[in-house]
């Protein structure tokens, strides 16, 4: 490759980086602006100030933010775990077994994936308040499954189809028990797919906003995206731009870390589940 071409590639790469990272960099920069600096009309703060982080971790907004952060992590992790387990069974059946209704399950998953969340939130709210699930963890975990399950089933069935299941039988022929064959041969083969699925499902749950604002009302279960709208300034009339930016940065950190570590897997998972040749 010629030197000129290399330079062009680097320019293209720089362009892509700028495009993808710019808004993130902006909110990070904003989060380090002091309240007097917010309106400076510039991209960068005049002085880097940590006051917004102090506000959300130890200050006025801590009582709002910390429970929300705990809820977000707890609820999203549980929803991810449940949907992974359920999807694992379903995907195994779809990939390995021959039974009528396979297509029905896959189309149902597809239909659920394109479902407008707002359409079901009111009936859920009414049902939840009757059965006492309103503003509780399970009250969010269950609806989150509607976000995470479909993609989990699709992605996992795609992964499971790639697994050379014959190896299981081969191992059994070689004298391993069924359990040994499963744990020694199949689990290592399936684990990456399950893991990738879990990450993608977690992203979806983490991103939720509509369920979060509609089915919760206190720190008992309110997740971070819903809590962002509740921050306030020194009085109810003042906008809390700085603390919101800081909280936004904090909730972005986990997803960025996941992306940086597992980028190859995530891409494989996203494209594997969606387009299959």
């Amino acid at each position: 490759m010629s030197r000129r071409e290399t330079i062009w590639w680097l320019v293209a790469a720089a362009g892509i980086l700028l495009y993808t990272l710019f808004p993130v960099a902006w909110i990070v920069s904003l989060s380090f602006k002091s309240s007097a600096d917010i309106a400076n009309g510039q991209f960068l703060p005049t002085v880097f100030a940590a006051e917004n982080y102090a506000t959300i971790f130890t200050g006025d907004a801590a009582e709002l933010f910390l429970p929300a952060l705990r809820n977000s992590f707890g609820i999203c992790l549980i929803a991810t775990a449940i949907s992974c387990v359920l999807a694992m069974f379903a995907a195994y059946a779809i990939a390995r077994l021959d039974f009528p209704g396979k297509k029905l399950i896959l189309s149902t998953a597809l239909a659920v994936a394109i479902f407008p969340v707002i359409s079901i939130v009111t009936p859920l709210f009414n049902l939840w308040r009757q059965v006492g699930l309103y503003d509780t963890w399970p009250g969010l975990i269950l609806p989150y499954l509607s976000l995470t399950l479909p993609i989990s089933i699709w992605t996992l069935s795609a992964f499971f189809r790639e697994i050379p299941w014959e190896m299981e039988e081969a191992a059994q022929v070689d004298g391993a028990t069924t359990w040994q064959a499963f744990t020694k041969v199949i689990v290592p083969l399936a684990a990456p797919g399950v893991f990738t699925t879990a990450i993608i499902a977690f992203f979806l749950a983490w991103n939720d906003f509509v369920y979060g604002i509609s089915l919760t009302s206190t720190g008992a279960s309110r997740p971070v995206p819903a809590a962002l709208g509740l921050f306030s300034g020194a009085s109810q009339f003042e906008s809390p731009n700085g603390p919101i930016a800081a909280a936004a940065v904090i909730v972005t950190i986990p997803v960025v870390v996941l992306v940086l570590i597992f980028q190859r897997r995530i891409v494989a998972g996203l494209t594997n589940g969606a387009v299959k040749g």
Binding site: F125, R129, Y134, S217, G229, L230
Partner: peptide
């Protein structure tokens, strides 16, 4: 929440 209308919603729904 911060907006009065949101405060009302939250309380009414509870």
């Amino acid at each position: 929440p911060r907006e009065a209308s949101d405060q009302r919603q939250q309380l009414i729904r509870r």
